[in-house]
Write a protein that binds this DNA or RNA. Sequence first.
DNA 1: AATGTTCGCAACCGCTTCCGG
DNA 2: GCCGGAAGCGGTTGCGAACAT
Length: 269
Amino acid sequence: MTRKPAAQQRGVASAGAGVMRTLKRGAWRPEEDELLSRAVATEGEGRWRTLPRRAGLLRCGKSCRLRWMNYLRPDIKRGPIAADEEDLILRLHRLLGNRWSLIAGRLPGRTDNEIKNYWNSHLSKKLIARGIDPRTHTPLPGAAASPYSHHADAAAAAAVSADKTPPLPEVEPQFAPPPPAHPSSPSGAGVVGDFASSMVGLGAEGFDGLGDPFCAPDVAARGVFGLDCPIVDDATFSSFLDSLMNEERIVDYFGDHKDADGENDQGGA
DNA sequence: AATGTTCGCAACCGCTTCCGG
DNA sequence: GCCGGAAGCGGTTGCGAACAT
């Protein structure tokens, strides 16, 4: 996608006709990408604050980091989200809520921004079409009687229409819905309670030996599970997440229609 | 063909968390 | 323990492209 030059794009000036060195904003140009890539190659990631100056870029460090993380990193995977990736995103979102970076961490080559965008533009609509609240994974109010009906409510119907996907088969959800994520905690506390209750339906019985096995270290550190929550090391938590990938595909949750409708045929960046 | 609408995604913003002094 | 700077994260914005009328 081509984009307008910085100042034009966002209305925020890179103007400033002063002595002051002004920062450029908006879309990155190829030569800027080149400068950034070279700088990271020689100096490594980190020290984003000072990197742009050393690289000869008129960008803030924040912008450089974002560009590198979401676009320039060599290990980034291009192309449409595959069915198994989508399955995993759904599973992880049920568990973790909108913790995109954590979710992205389990999808090699995918960025948090990409997953967030995919969720907002595709998956949340699919859930709504199924009469499921994408935020809580619980039935939408109007759809409570038959949450998986094709005609659950107007919102679902509208979403189906908007989604341009064929109707989904009526399938009982594989998993028991977790409680809503914490809305008041934008950067992470959304996990609150999700882990424990999600385990009921997530085939997590295999983790019985771990107590509350899904108290990831950061979650435990935030105290969201209280004192009873054992702190599980990264490896344990990681192995749990890995196990999600090996479960029967969550696609039953939606019906396996993706390949047929070509919905994921969006090109890469 | 022209115009309006919707969609997908890159980039920005503001807040939170981390870390060193 | 406190403070300030740096890094990280999630929500939101706004543009161009694609599609519909």
